[in-house]
Lab assay of single mutants.
Amino acid sequence: EHQTACDSYWTSVHPEYWTKRHVWEWLQFCCDQYKLDTNCISFCNFNISGLQLCSMTQEEFVEAAGLCGEYLYFILQNIRTQG
């Protein structure tokens, strides 16, 4: 039997508790949902936990993801305040 992915999907966990996999799933979702250019995102810069992600500043997001960084930063802040 296969496990259902939704059990541990990033949407069901507060961002501060995300694993590295959750972070990448979220990035992929943002790219799909908001039509962000994946080429401007250095995924290696996001090989981090949710706690590390949440402690990043807006400037660090821009450094890590170029033009997309600002969008990603605000998307994350939205999730954190709603969560």
Rank of each mutant, 00 (worst) to 15 (best):
E1W: 11
E1T: 09
E1Y: 11
E1C: 09
H2S: 09
H2I: 15
H2L: 09
H2C: 12
H2E: 07
Q3F: 05
Q3P: 09
Q3D: 08
Q3A: 04
T4V: 11
T4K: 12
T4N: 09
T4W: 07
T4H: 13
A5S: 13
A5I: 10
A5H: 12
D7N: 09
Y9W: 15
Y9H: 14
W10L: 11
T11I: 07
T11A: 10
S12P: 04
V13N: 04
V13M: 09
V13T: 06
V13W: 01
H14Y: 08
H14F: 07
H14R: 13
H14C: 07
H14D: 09
H14V: 05
P15C: 02
P15D: 04
P15R: 00
P15H: 00
P15W: 10
P15Q: 02
E16K: 14
E16H: 14
E16C: 08
E16D: 06
E16Y: 12
E16I: 15
E16R: 14
Y17Q: 13
Y17M: 15
Y17G: 13
Y17F: 08
Y17S: 14
W18P: 01
W18D: 05
W18G: 01
W18V: 00
W18M: 00
T19Y: 03
T19K: 08
T19P: 01
T19M: 00
T19W: 00
T19A: 06
K20C: 06
K20T: 07
K20S: 10
K20Y: 00
R21F: 05
R21C: 08
R21M: 07
R21Y: 08
R21H: 13
H22G: 05
H22N: 15
H22F: 03
H22A: 06
V23G: 01
V23A: 00
W24M: 14
W24G: 10
W24T: 13
W24P: 00
E25V: 05
E25G: 08
E25N: 06
E25Q: 12
E25W: 05
E25S: 09
E25M: 04
W26S: 00
W26M: 01
W26E: 01
W26P: 00
W26R: 03
W26D: 00
L27R: 01
L27I: 08
L27M: 02
L27W: 00
L27D: 00
Q28I: 15
Q28C: 07
Q28V: 08
Q28G: 05
Q28L: 12
Q28S: 15
Q28E: 09
Q28N: 14
F29C: 06
F29H: 09
C30Y: 01
C30G: 00
C30W: 04
C30E: 00
C30A: 09
C30H: 02
C30K: 03
C31H: 09
C31Y: 02
C31W: 03
C31L: 07
C31I: 07
C31M: 09
C31K: 06
D32I: 01
D32S: 08
D32Q: 15
D32T: 10
D32E: 14
D32V: 10
Q33E: 14
Q33R: 14
Q33Y: 09
Q33V: 07
Y34W: 06
Y34V: 02
Y34T: 00
Y34R: 06
Y34E: 07
Y34G: 07
K35C: 13
K35F: 04
K35P: 05
L36R: 03
L36E: 01
L36Y: 06
L36K: 03
L36V: 04
L36G: 07
L36A: 00
L36I: 07
L36W: 12
D37S: 10
D37G: 03
T38I: 14
T38S: 13
T38G: 08
T38D: 06
T38P: 13
T38F: 08
T38E: 13
T38A: 11
T38L: 12
N39D: 09
N39K: 11
N39L: 06
N39Q: 13
C40L: 12
C40T: 12
C40S: 15
C40W: 04
I41T: 04
I41E: 05
I41A: 04
I41N: 01
I41Y: 04
I41P: 00
I41M: 07
I41G: 03
I41R: 01
I41L: 09
S42Y: 00
S42R: 11
F43W: 14
F43H: 10
F43K: 13
F43I: 11
F43M: 11
C44S: 14
C44Y: 10
C44R: 13
C44V: 12
N45I: 06
N45V: 08
N45T: 11
N45A: 14
N45Y: 09
N45L: 08
N45R: 13
N45W: 05
N45K: 14
F46A: 03
F46M: 06
F46N: 04
F46R: 03
N47D: 13
N47L: 04
N47T: 05
N47P: 05
N47W: 06
I48Q: 01
I48S: 02
I48W: 02
I48A: 03
I48Y: 04
I48R: 05
I48V: 11
I48M: 09
S49R: 05
S49N: 14
S49M: 05
S49P: 06
L51N: 13
L51V: 12
L51S: 15
L51Y: 13
Q52W: 04
Q52L: 05
Q52G: 03
Q52A: 07
Q52N: 06
Q52H: 05
Q52Y: 01
L53Y: 00
L53C: 01
L53P: 03
L53E: 02
L53M: 03
C54R: 01
C54E: 02
C54S: 03
C54A: 05
S55Q: 13
S55E: 12
S55R: 12
S55V: 05
S55I: 05
S55K: 11
S55F: 05
M56R: 03
M56G: 03
M56S: 05
M56Y: 06
T57M: 05
T57P: 05
T57A: 07
T57S: 12
Q58H: 10
Q58R: 13
Q58M: 09
Q58V: 12
Q58I: 09
Q58K: 14
E59I: 10
E59G: 10
E60T: 01
E60F: 03
E60A: 08
E60W: 13
E60R: 04
E60M: 06
E60L: 02
F61M: 08
F61I: 05
V62Q: 10
V62N: 08
V62C: 11
E63M: 08
E63I: 04
E63Y: 01
A64W: 05
A64M: 07
A64K: 13
A64D: 08
A65I: 04
A65Q: 03
A65M: 07
A65V: 04
G66L: 01
G66K: 03
G66E: 01
G66C: 00
L67Q: 14
L67I: 11
L67A: 15
C68Q: 15
C68H: 15
C68K: 12
C68D: 12
C68G: 12
G69Y: 01
G69K: 04
E70L: 05
E70H: 10
E70C: 05
E70F: 06
E70R: 11
E70D: 10
E70N: 10
Y71D: 15
L72I: 03
L72E: 01
Y73G: 02
Y73W: 11
Y73P: 00
Y73M: 04
Y73C: 01
F74H: 14
F74G: 15
F74W: 10
I75T: 15
I75D: 15
I75G: 10
L76D: 01
L76A: 03
L76F: 09
Q77L: 08
Q77V: 05
Q77P: 01
Q77F: 04
N78C: 05
N78A: 07
N78H: 05
N78I: 05
N78F: 06
I79L: 13
I79S: 06
I79N: 07
I79Q: 09
I79A: 08
I79G: 01
R80Q: 08
R80M: 12
R80F: 01
R80P: 01
T81K: 14
T81Q: 13
T81F: 06
Q82L: 06
Q82V: 07
Q82T: 13
G83R: 13
G83W: 12
